[in-house]
């Protein structure tokens, strides 16, 4: 069972969190022109590496904050976690 360090609450077991997928996706700004393919990329295409993956998690049974987790998808090792506005090392 993963142990995830919520940047607000500290280390907690996986069962307190829900997953939020690829954190590198950037939603195009509202009201700006976006091409069909750019939009398609945003809605459907995912970074899906075997190895280091930057992803979102939501501390759903805790502080209810979304945050970033830098995790290895091959080993499940968590390299670091950070708040949304923090740069991940």
């Amino acid at each position: 069972m993963l142990e995830i360090k919520c940047p607000y609450c500290g280390k907690r077991s996986q069962i307190e969190f829900s997953y939020g997928g690829d954190a590198k996706l950037e939603r195009p700004k509202l009201g700006t022109e976006v091409s069909d393919s750019e939009w398609n990329e945003f809605v459907y295409y995912r970074n899906n590496p075997r190895g280091e993956h930057l992803e979102l998690w939501h501390h759903i049974s805790g502080c209810r904050q979304w945050f970033k987790v830098f995790r290895n998808t091959a080993t499940h090792e968590i390299l670091s976690t950070s708040k949304i506005d923090e740069k991940i090392k």
Partner: peptide, 9 residues
Amino acid sequence: YNSYAQRGN
């Protein structure tokens, strides 16, 4: 969660 490990929890 994304995973390529053929193991779960």
